[in-house]
Design a protein around this nucleic acid. Structure first.
Lengths: 349, 349
DNA sequence: GCTACCTTTGTAAACGCTTGCAGTCTAGCC
DNA sequence: GGCTAGACTGCAAGCGTTTACAAAGGTAGC
């Protein structure tokens, strides 16, 4: 394949392979002149360290695994994208592990062969130095296996016991959204909550729901069950939730807080279908920062998913490269209210 | 880390490491009883072959690289997702390479350090056994470097010289879309074409445009420049293209063929903003099979992106494992007209 | 001028598998 | 019964780096 090995470089540079290795790895104990000579030789021969050989000898692969429940949904891939940028710039490759969701309608200990193989085989191959979990719920067994790997692990968006997690303060996010609506004068605000069909512990939706409840309570407003509906985290889910919330033409909420932007799109569809104008008849606010929100004029809480991935990645780098100087890690993730056309004061206010 | 090596398994099973290796690799020259004993020993010890060691010794990493210009756009990640399923089931991991687009507004030979590093370093590390290129335009130099790797390479969606490519027949896709509109009775059909801001050779949009032209020509209709507009492949792009196409209130097309579903969403927005009802005042058809199309009632040509990824992956597997029995590879990719609410006969028909 | 120490480099032993080659054993054949 | 082919298995040499340790060459202090 690549017939240029470290030996040829060593020969050309007139040093030993050990020195080549040290020079190319940026080790300090190499004189400037030697390092220069080695680098030039390497460039001339087009030499690049073999990942497998280096990995075997050093025990480090310079590769990080990203585990996610969905490989083609915007939020998850945005996180991945942000992580990729950071890790790649630090010289790491990304390997993706698809951790298939355990569906709610399955029994807890359901036998999912792919997922099982992931934890019992793939991860044990030690192809990666560290793992980034994106919005994942793990069983105790799975968490144990992860810890047994003895590698840095960081979770994004969904806290896991014993795993450092980076997530926005979902309660605060929800409160911000609802408060925005309250400040516009809304008093009858509904919540289109997200249910992950695969989620075993509901963190995100529960917290957002709690934020909704809290904000209403603080405003002295009641939380009514007819003002809460659920759907999965897609526009379809948002649509069906909205259809429920808006079912009674004589008693409709004046605003809907949707647990994600894609759900909010569904709410917009529903409103349109019911001939409700947004924001005149109904205000809508979402969460995420999905790119189509701009065009649709959707007010949202942007939680900067790519930035979340980047932050998680930096946290891993801190552990992977303790010598390096790292900027202090942000622990509380930023979010931001973006006001667009879909929210306004209620007509009857 | 993982202190169970092949030697312990060999001891426990009472055989040599060579036999363990062969048994676990599924080589034929191992007796059934020995194989069983080895497998049991491995399971008991929780032994899994080390990826690096195996890779170094055998020269094969059991990992495939996926190169894409965008890491968080639906089409690309759907392809990746389909490929992942197939490859993972075959025992391969996926490593992602972000090949940053060379933007159109750059000079051709633009110096993009990340992209350069990808071709001059990352790929040379031989971390993967094969490569899947998703909608990528490469320079000659880059293609040469790829070939120099001596590894199986397959491209999806955008033909590259000397690289086996799997793509839908974009001309036929466009013709199907336009023909659908013609059959509904439309005679004034516009094209909201996609421009990839990064694309250097325009394959997809050009072919779709050609299909549009052909279908019109076959129907004896003229192609007018005022009926063609371009935007990037996003809903924003579709929106601005549609705003141009629909600018003259007295002379509007009765239908718009958008080069992607996301663009079609933008067209729908534009129509709505102009108080045009869909499909009464304007029919809209897209291409892709994006999941939100269902809710939006968008007629589209589904090109099954995940299936494209799967097909590309299978093609790689054929080359990676010549011994195995493989089903014959599909070469022409399937697509499918999905009729929904956004298209109907024109009112004036 | 001698010692002690630091910097830089080389030597060679891993790292944990895979695989060509050779050897053993069994069974079939004449 | 001797011979051969074939089926298994083991031996040991890599695979291409990294890195602990040793060695060499300076430098500075006294």
């Amino acid at each position: 394949m690549n017939n240029v090995g470290i030996r040829k470089v060593a020969e050309l540079a007139g040093v030993s392979t050990a020195t080549v290795s040290r020079a190319l790895a940026g080790k300090p104990s190499v004189s400037a002149s030697t390092r220069a000579r080695v680098e030039e030789a390497a460039k001339e021969l087009g030499y690049v360290v073999s990942a497998t050989a280096s990995g075997l000898a050093s025990g480090r692969t310079r590769s990080v695994g990203v585990m996610m429940p969905f490989l083609n949904r915007w939020f998850f891939t945005s996180v991945m994208s942000g992580a990729h940028r950071v890790l790649n710039d630090a010289g790491y490759d990304l390997t993706i592990y698809h951790c298939e969701p355990n569906r709610l309608d399955d029994t807890q200990g359901v036998h999912n062969p792919r997922r099982e193989r992931l934890f019992q085989e793939s991860l044990l191959r030690h192809r990666v130095d560290a793992l980034l979990l994106v919005t994942l719920s793990l069983t105790t067994t799975e968490r144990d296996r992860l810890h047994a790997l003895g590698k840095p692990v960081v979770a994004i968006d969904r806290p896991q016991p014993d795993i450092p997690t980076f997530a926005v303060d979902n309660l605060a996010v929800a409160k911000t959204a609802v408060t925005h609506l309250l400040e516009l004068g809304h008093r009858d605000i509904a919540y289109a909550g997200g249910v992950l069909p695969y989620d075993l512990d509901f963190q995100v939706p529960v917290l957002r729901r709690a934020g909704y409840d809290t904000a209403l309570a603080e405003a002295g407003l009641p939380v009514r069950s007819t003002r809460v509906a659920e759907g999965d985290f897609t526009s379809q889910g948002g649509y069906s939730a909205a259809m429920k919330l808006l079912a009674d033409p004589h008693h409709r909420p004046t605003a809907i807080f949707a647990a994600s932007d894609e759900m909010a799109y569904g709410v917009l569809m529903a409103a349109r279908e019911l001939d409700l104008r947004v924001p005149e008849d109904l205000s809508v606010i979402g969460v995420d920062g999905h790119p189509m929100g701009d065009l649709l004029g959707l007010t949202t809480i942007d939680q900067h998913p790519a930035e979340q991935g980047a932050i998680g990645a930096r946290a891993l780098l801190v552990e992977l490269e303790p010598d390096e100087q790292h900027p202090p890690a942000a622990t509380r993730l930023p979010f931001e209210l973006i006001t667009r056309r879909s929210t306004a004061a209620p007509r009857t206010a």
